[in-house]
Design a protein around this nucleic acid. Structure first.
Length: 640
RNA sequence: GGCGACGUAGCUUAGUUGGUUAGAGCGGCCGGUUCAUACCCGGCAGGUCGGCGGUUCGACUCCACCCGUCGCUACCA
């Protein structure tokens, strides 16, 4: 009987369209799922969407839609992208699914009835106008982060989960399963920051917004989104809080791995295991926290309009190329970087030149010398041995890397097959053999060895690039192999190659591409600039005046802040500005600079800031510069 | 502030319990080849393994300190 393997992605939050970095996780997980299937595991791969919470309620409202309407649209978009990227999930769960909702209510009730959840009082900082509770760390200079007004300590009724009760058991689980948190460096963060100081009980209900799963015995409250979201891993495969589990649950739980982003490791390695302990269910075997795929030259930002989306990139470069790229761009323990130039370099280098061209030249020779048909004619030469060893040895090396979730390294191992095969062509020089009638069998054997190497390599590459590798197999008139026979050379007895093999990966003219891209972006910016035109009445709301800095010092408690005392006409004000990385206090004293004077005051590190220095930022060069009048003007002069 | 990680060739990076000439890919330079998507193959470039000490017969790999970069520091997901 096949061994089971259950893996999941984190479910994607439906607050907006996922960028390529979010999509990376689905592709990564898919690569693992496909590799495991080739290895013969009975794989269940679950992904989906997390659709509740205040943020979504707010976003929907802003878009003039009902929350359900809103999440239907976004979830549809996410599913469409996953499908487009060939993510081969077995189940796509949505937290608005009826059976999920029902189970969450049952789970909440069960935990309440057994005393792990209790009713208490949530104490936080409350902003009355915004009707919002904030935590200490969310406050901005001691004030409401939304409106900047005063907040008050306030209490509200809420349900809490007794986290501390399970802390010792969790520690024990960490100790007994050293690979539970991967990379292990994250484990220390969890232990040192949370477990050692003592776990606080977690507030698991909300009553300040509605868009969530109602607590069925107390409908003022909705279930805290993380209890809702995390449980998808069991509800999606048929968990039942009453114990009448579905077949899939009995078969697949516990999960073999939860693949998640590094930002949510805490939820998956502390809260989730504790919820499971409380439910009396086994814990997942591993939580793998991957790094982030970042965009070159700073953050992706929707307002800047430089966000890369996987589906757009796939339209430009192809699904397989983007899958390959995002998988290889990620180092094991840190973040990866994505840029158009490096995508093109990878496509041209490894995909077109090494892999694609190998397929192309081999197919062409088989057609040219033998009319498209070739088999092992038995003309072995010692030089063949090394080729076969490299080709047949690649699986073990790649599989070892996959077991460590070092995907990029696994792919690198596969490429040694193609590199070795290219070298083999130079070593055996088929074009010279072809000129000697007596070497015909040798030539046939050489080309057969190449075809066989390509099929083995393509089979290994298949989990990462499903379509292109299948095409490669079609070119050689065969199918890709599962990994039980991947270490044997000579499985196929003969190859029949198609006549006009299509090019798997076209080379891209990088210079031309970048020029066209720049032209396109400039055009977009112009359009955008026009769209964002404002009237003079908008501008006149902002009062800018020239201020003279009469004193300046560093704010001790902070890294970035400077406290400035400025004179605007007869008035003296205190301003806090985050520019200490760019200016020393001495540099600023005596200077005249432009400042917004009618901004609502805000407390930063306990100091009230009564205005804002305006600065120009050159992100690329990392330069920040304040603006000052070109001629000397009296402080207090207005800027128009 | 507390805890932790990292800093290896122009770039991205491997380096397992310390041990002979520190590996690879990309880029660069030189040479070879023509089956192929101006591809492929070979060679070279020569990096004080962040800095300074220490332990050791011997350290990129262990310890201390310094410099730099980054992560986590709880109820927004």
């Amino acid at each position: 009987m096949k061994e089971k393997f259950y893996l999941t992605t984190a479910i994607a939050y439906t607050s907006g369209k996922p960028h390529v970095g979010n999509t990376y996780e689905a592709i990564l997980s898919d690569a693992v799922a496909r590799f495991k299937r080739r290895q013969g595991y009975d794989v269940f791969f679950q992904t989906g969407t997390d659709e509740h919470g205040q943020k979504i309620e707010d976003k929907a409202k802003a878009a003039g839609k009902s929350p359900k309407q809103f999440v239907d649209e976004v979830a549809g978009e996410i599913k469409r992208i996953w499908d487009k990227m060939e993510v081969s999930y077995d189940k796509f769960i949505r937290t608005t699914d009826e059976d999920h909702v029902k189970q969450i209510q049952k789970i909440f009730k069960k935990l309440y009835e057994q005393g792990d959840i209790y009713k208490g009082e949530y104490e936080g900082w409350y902003c009355k106008p915004c009707e919002s509770f904030w935590t200490e760390s969310q406050l901005n200079g001691g004030k409401c982060p939304d409106c900047g007004r005063e907040v008050k300590k306030a209490k509200e009724e809420a349900y809490f989960f007794k986290m501390s009760k399970y802390a010792d058991r969790l520690m024990k689980y960490y100790d007994e399963h050293p690979e539970f948190i991967t990379p292990v460096s994250r484990k220390n963060e969890m232990i040192n920051n949370f477990l050692k100081p003592g776990l606080q009980d977690l507030c698991v209900s909300r009553s300040t917004f509605k868009w969530g799963i109602p607590v069925d015995f107390d409908d003022k409250h909705v279930v805290y989104v993380w209890l809702d979201a995390l449980s998808n891993y069991i509800t999606g495969i048929g968990y039942d809080a009453d114990g009448n589990h579905g077949e899939n649950y009995k078969k697949y739980w516990p999960a073999d791995v939860h693949i998640i982003g590094k930002d949510i490791i805490r939820f998956h390695t502390i809260y989730w295991p504790i919820f499971l302990m409380a439910l009396g269910e086994p814990l997942p075997k591993k939580v793998y926290g991957h790094g982030w795929l970042l965009q070159e030259g700073g953050k992706m930002s929707k307002s800047v309009g430089n966000v890369l989306y996987a589906d757009d990139l796939a339209d430009t470069f192809g699904v397989d190329a983007i899958r390959y790229y995002v998988l290889t761009a990620m180092p094991m323990e840190s973040d990866g970087v994505i840029s158009y130039e490096s995508i093109i370099d990878e496509i041209n280098g490894n995909l077109a030149n090494v892999f694609g061209n190998l397929v192309s030249r081999t197919a062409a020779m088989i057609n040219k010398y033998f009319g498209g048909s070739v088999y092992d004619a038995g003309a072995f030469e010692p030089i063949d041995q090394d080729l076969k060893e490299v080709v047949c040895g690649a699986y073990k090396k790649a599989a070892a890397k996959m077991d460590e979730y070092r995907i990029a390294d696994a792919i690198e191992q596969v490429f040694t097959v193609f590199r070795r095969a290219n070298k083999y062509i130079d070593e055996t020089t088929p074009w010279i053999l072809s000129k000697d009638e007596s070497k015909k069998d040798r030539l046939k054997t050489v080309l057969y060895n190449l075809a066989e190497s390509i099929i083995i390599g393509a089979s290994l590459l298949n989990p990462f690039m499903p379509k292109a590798t299948e095409k490669a197999a079609e070119i050689f008139g065969t199918k890709l192999r599962d990994y039980d026979i991947i270490e044997t050379f000579g499985v196929n007895k003969e190859y029949k190659v198609v006549n006009d093999a299509e090019i798997l990966f076209a080379r891209i003219d990088k210079e031309k591409f970048m020029e066209e891209l720049n032209a396109k972006q400039q055009a977009n910016e112009q359009v955008k600039a026009q769209e964002e035109l404002i009237g003079i009445e908008d501008f006149s709301k902002v009062k800018i005046k020239i201020a003279k800095v009469i004193a300046c010092e560093k704010v001790e408690k902070s890294k970035k802040l400077l406290k400035l005392t400025v004179k605007i006409g007869d008035e003296q004000r205190t301003v806090v500005s985050g520019i200490s990385n760019y200016y020393t206090p001495e540099e600023l004293i005596g200077k005249k600079l432009a400042m917004i004077v009618n901004l609502k005051p805000a407390k930063l590190c306990g100091i009230e800031s009564q205005g804002m220095i305006i600065c120009a930022e050159d992100e690329k060069a990392g330069v920040v510069a304040y603006l000052s009048p070109e001629k000397d003007v009296e402080e207090g002069s207005q800027v128009f």
